[in-house]
Simulated assay, not measured.
Amino acid sequence: MNLDQQNWWSKFLTDEKGVILDVRTSDEVNRGKIPGSINIDIFKGQGFIYEVEELDKNKNYYVYCAAGARSANACNIMKELGFENAYNLVGGFSEWTGPTE
């Protein structure tokens, strides 16, 4: 599900089962990230799928990348793997105005 920044962040803040997933490369993450996010690079291909399958499917995932395209793909992959709730951040980190570290 695609959510704009305000809805994505406010939904996450009130979600006891929320996890932020950053699907960018480690180089991108090193330039800044949303606090508390876990990183699994979607460009790892099959490695991405292996790592995602280790995640708890009972949690809700708030997924982002740089602009929103890779995270949309990641949400689709996660749905195929049986994750019920994966929310894509429209506009990605490049348009993010919330907290960063």
Rank of each mutant, 00 (worst) to 15 (best):
T14C: 08
V63Q: 06
F93H: 04
I34T: 02
L21G: 02
T25Y: 03
R70A: 03
E28N: 05
Q46H: 11
G47K: 13
G91T: 09
F12M: 03
T14Q: 15
K57W: 12
D15P: 06
K11E: 07
F93L: 14
Y61C: 09
N7I: 11
Y62Q: 12
W9F: 10
G32N: 07
G36E: 09
V19E: 01
N30D: 14
F48Q: 09
V19H: 01
L55S: 04
D15M: 05
K44A: 12
K57H: 08
G68A: 11
D4N: 14
N76C: 10
I20V: 14
M78E: 08
W8L: 07
Y87E: 07
A74Y: 12
F12S: 03
E51H: 08
S26P: 12
F12K: 03
V90F: 04
S37G: 01
G36I: 15
S10R: 09
P35E: 09
Q6E: 15
R70D: 03
N85M: 04
N88D: 15
P99G: 01
S10Y: 07
N73V: 12
N60P: 00
I40Q: 06
A66R: 15
V90T: 14
T14W: 05
Y87I: 08
L55W: 05
W9V: 09
V63E: 07
M78N: 09
E51R: 06
P35V: 11
V63Y: 09
M78Q: 11
P35H: 10
Q46Y: 11
D41W: 09
T100F: 07
A66G: 10
G45D: 11
C65F: 10
G47R: 14
E84G: 01
G18Y: 02
V29Q: 01
G47Q: 12
N30P: 06
Y87M: 07
G45P: 06
M1P: 06
G32I: 14
N7T: 14
L81R: 11
E54Q: 11
V23R: 00
V52S: 02
E80N: 10
G45V: 14
F43Q: 13
G98H: 00
E54G: 01
N39G: 00
L89I: 14
S71K: 04
N39P: 04
T97D: 04
I40G: 05
G47M: 13
I42G: 01
G98A: 00
E54L: 13
N58Q: 14
R24F: 12
N60Q: 00
F93V: 03
S94N: 10
I77C: 08
E84M: 07
K59C: 01
L55Y: 10
K33D: 01
C75D: 07
K57N: 08
G68D: 07
E80D: 12
K11F: 03
Y62A: 05
S71E: 02
S37M: 05
S94V: 12
G82K: 02
F93R: 06
I34N: 02
L21E: 04
S71P: 04
A86E: 03
N76F: 13
G36A: 05
S94G: 00
R31C: 11
K59F: 02
F43T: 14
A86D: 01
K59Y: 03
L81V: 14
T97Y: 00
N2H: 13
L21K: 01
W8K: 05
L13D: 00
G45Y: 15
W8M: 05
V29E: 05
S71N: 09
